[in-house]
Write a protein that binds this DNA or RNA. Sequence first.
RNA 1: GCCCCCGUAGCUCAAUGGAUAGAGCACCAGCCUUCUAAGCUGUAGGUUACAGGUUCGAGCCCUGUCGGGGGCGCCA
Length: 601
Amino acid sequence: MFNDIQQTIEDKIKAWSAANDITLATLKWTAIPFSGEWGVSTSFFQTAADEARAGKGTGKPVPQRAQELAEQVKVQMGSVEGISHVEAIKGYLNVYFATGAYARRVVDTVLASGTDFGRGSAKGERVMVEYCQPNTHHSFHIGHYRTTILGESLARLTEFAGFETIRASYPGDIGLGVITVMWAYDKFYKGQEPAGVHERGQWLLKIYAEATALLEKHDDETPEQTTQREAYEAERREMYRKWDVGDPEVRALWQETREWSLAEMHDILDTLDVKMDVFFFESEVDEPSKAIVQELIERDIATDERSIGGPVIVKIDEKLGLAKEKYRTAVILRSDGTSLYLTKDLALARVKFEQYHVDRSIYVVDFRQSLHFQQAFKILEMWGFPQAAKCYHLSYGYITLPEGAMSSRRGRVILFKEVADEAVKRVLSVESEKSGDIPESERESIARQIGLGALAYSILSVDNNKDIVFDMNEALSFDGRTGPYIQNAHVRANSILKKVNGQLPPAEFRHNMEKHEIELIEKISRFPAVVEQAANEYRPMVMAMYAYDLANTFHSFYHAVPVMQTEDGEVRNARLRLVAAAKQTIANALRLLDIHAPDVM
RNA sequence: GCCCCCGUAGCUCAAUGGAUAGAGCACCAGCCUUCUAAGCUGUAGGUUACAGGUUCGAGCCCUGUCGGGGGCGCCA
């Protein structure tokens, strides 16, 4: 956390190596495996190996030579301000911090920074995170939730790490699926409309599933059924055509039903505390996207095969001179002149670069689109956008059901709303036996925080490229490595602090600290580095792991180390400040995971 | 045929090329007159799919094999 001490040591090592004609490899600092004290560690394996390769070594095995070097440095080190002692062990140089001074510094820094503890310095780069791409006219299911929570957490991380961050959503509000719902609604349900935002959204999903069944070809259908199906199909096609040419009636129907879905989506985003900066609607990028195709043809990036009845394509592998198939050939415009997913994404990327001036563009989209994005990024590169190098597809695995993939068309989905409601219900059912004193007026809201926290954590704590087989009991578990476990650490910290009404007199940390105290301080001090890592690697999971680790350390501390019962006032004050610092760090970590940190539960 | 992801404890998952591969769940044994037991402590559980290679050092990098998932010019 504090690099100045580390820097002092590093300078000393460099001076020593220069004086002794030793070619020092780059020093990498890591945390020492915890053993009751804390500090940082670096090794000399690389330096020893370099020596051996250069032929100027001593002929000794690398580990032995590394240990020798570490010992020499240790002898050479002398005393350094803020360092209690140094040890050379197994080729590593372990530098231990002077406990009291370091502890005080960490705790004071956290308390002074508050909600800003861990915030990175401004990076001078603008990041756009595109996530939450639900289709309208269906309902928001648990798969949409995964991109939303993943993207929101990532956006919070990049923002906190110091990147200027723009949150973007790209709802699919037009396409065959949308038209299918409109057709069925218009034909069978015109004028009807259930009350309630979510009821309406879910009703559309039901209509979609019904419509799909009507339009699906069956092997054993009778001639009458075939005629019927083909007539339906023709009606749907006609409706799409009318939408395309801007028929007022169809457009009005579209606007109305689209609004139902968007209302539901906004309600869910509110529930999740997601504040989008920009919405790119598929319907709005459709028309402009066609214009870029001509430009790509003129630049000789795309090949127009329309004269022979074909589409417009980009032969990526051929253009790159690749012998093996890798990016293949991408179609960027249908032979009938209509746009495709890729057409729109290329156009959208240009808007992001030129209108929003983004330096990095991150797409939180499921892993099945990985070829699509590889193609898109390559084409952008050929097109001459340097930002293409900093485009990143954060792919994630599907959420499937035990019986197989979810399918909106078959109506076989787990809706986010169902899960969220169930989560709150389950929390309320255990609140009476497990909770502390929760004011009646807050019970519902805290139950929501805990339920949604459990759900969010169950998604964020799994590596994004893993598939998740959705299990309600697992997703909403409150025990062990879960959101509520972390929230509970925050609550316990708060319950101690309540007893002094938040009064935190200064403290020196001169007492002989127990290992649980030291370990807690060590974990807290790692938070800023974890923020950097999670943001740089685009991995919310790193923060999820850390949050658990920190809470786990706090729970152990809480159990083993008395705070209010401490007789010595000086020690009590120090521990109170440590508890406050832990509470703050837990809250900051949870916030980056889009999880609330309640004061009671 | 080609490309991408994955394979770690019974199950679900971790582990910037670095020290003794770690958690949770499940199982077993303890801990509430003491700051919230949604908790803590302990036991048990491993040939990191397999075979080579690179490296002082490989779960991690490279090659191959096997197994699972996904994708591959007009769906999104």
